[in-house]
Nucleic acid binder design. Structure first.
Lengths: 244, 244
DNA sequence: GTCGCGCCATGATCCAGATCAAGTTGAGTT
DNA sequence: AACTCAACTTGATCTGGATCATGGCGCGAC
């Protein structure tokens, strides 16, 4: 007790707003007690690192609030933000733990975030006693893997404009504020540079595409504020036929 | 007994040459017996489909011999071969099963292959009674996920020539025949078109890059035979610095 | 045989997006 | 306010790879 950093409220997980959405819900009371006792919550300021690329994986991180991204440094020294963002309810770091690897990227709080740490030993202990827990992580991993493969070849197949439109629509689901007139306001959680790196493009190209969308009247960009004027047209571009 | 198709020898898994490399090894004798009894092995000829994109996922497929690839049809009707190939010992189809999805791609035997089918119900039953089995699949999924993310941004970062060099070196590990003079002969398991689709490129571009490598004396291509003359130089291109 | 039909090679041209090079804006600091 | 530094915009230019078009070649079917 008595940390220099203000500790996040170390509430019982059962009271955590996002608990139901995590893989951890559904364990026995005894195991829950163990988890509650051992977990360590803490507040991270925007820009602060939670763990570093190359670090040994000491456990997993359950995101209570805020937003966390994973960064890698590519061969040329550029910082690249991976597509898979950590929203509240997401447990980060399970991949390297289970694959027996070091962290492949640096986790950084993209907004002020509250994060609970669960040590590797405890995770393994819980996994052994709760086959369901493993299955839920397996389900999660299977989903992630599907998305990663999907992204891989969507990326190759579609031009930048479409990929940006797609990303906007995804972010809208998490950060969108719907207006009465059918338009939507989205607050981008990342800089344009990060936006670019997430889509495998350069910032200049993003700027140009943004200008295009702006001129076409599809959306208005101002700093990190995006006002989507014509969602239907954006959807149309992604899938002219009308999916499914 | 008495199928129109020649059934693969329905040997006990314990005698299967690749059994030790699969996720299935390490279960109790009783569970093994159950698996042996219920599995269905069969021979697939080159080009034959094992399951189809969009099919409900009825179980998983353990590859005993041969080679299996996953194809998707992209928006423009082109066939795209995914990077993740199924070598002997690989269990295919676990991803959609665990994610509760339909098959996202068509599995096709790239060579004559023997494949054992294990029904979904049995898989779930075994997973519940064998936490370790789940953990091994989790480990596998975690590895696959790591590779998928790695590929994603390697693809964006490197030009075609490097990506082809990399793929060649991977295939070498599975299909290479080392000669005394240090050169290697690789028999490509796929057509140039598939090669192209795996790397998100067009066949014409592959042809041109191949000609380049040929002229530079790095490798000689003749049909599906590739004679790698200077592996060290190929490695050098991938990582001029000298990894690690 | 030769007909057809994928697969592959090669040339000519085009284009999305990268790269290079200045500016501009904007938030934070002293 | 003036200074700084990073994020952004905009323009000019270059280029890897796509696209379009054509011809050769290997192979199975008849």
């Amino acid at each position: 007790m008595g940390d220099s950093k203000a500790p996040a409220s170390q509430t019982d997980c059962i009271f955590c707003k996002v608990f139901g959405r995590t893989e951890w819900s559904g364990m026995s009371a005894a195991d829950m007690a163990k988890l509650n006792e051992a977990k360590v919550c803490r507040q991270f300021d925007r820009g602060e690192a939670i763990f570093y690329e190359g670090d040994e994986c000491r456990g997993v991180y359950c995101i209570k609030s805020g937003l966390v991204g994973i960064r890698k440094i590519d061969g040329e020294g550029n910082s690249v933000l991976l597509g898979r963002l950590g929203y509240p309810g997401t447990t980060l770091g399970y991949r390297p733990l289970l694959a027996g690897e070091c962290h492949r990227g640096t986790a950084e709080a993209l907004e002020d975030s509250q994060v609970c740490f669960i040590a590797a030993g405890l995770v393994r202990w819980l996994l052994e006693r709760n086959p369901d827990l493993g299955l839920r992580f397996l389900h999660h991993a299977a989903k992630d893997l599907g998305n990663a493969e999907e992204d891989f070849f969507q990326n190759a197949a579609h031009p930048l404009r479409l990929r940006l439109a797609h990303l906007l629509l995804v972010l809208k689901d998490h950060y969108g504020e719907n207006f009465d007139d059918g338009t939507v306001m989205v607050e981008l959680p990342v800089t344009r540079q990060d936006l670019a790196s997430m889509m495998g493009a350069r910032p200049e190209s993003i700027s140009r595409v943004i200008k295009e969308l702006d001129q076409d009247g599809l959306a208005t960009f101002s700093g990190r504020q995006v006002h989507i004027q014509r969602i239907d047209d954006l959807l149309w571009e992604l899938d002219p036929a009308g999916e499914a």
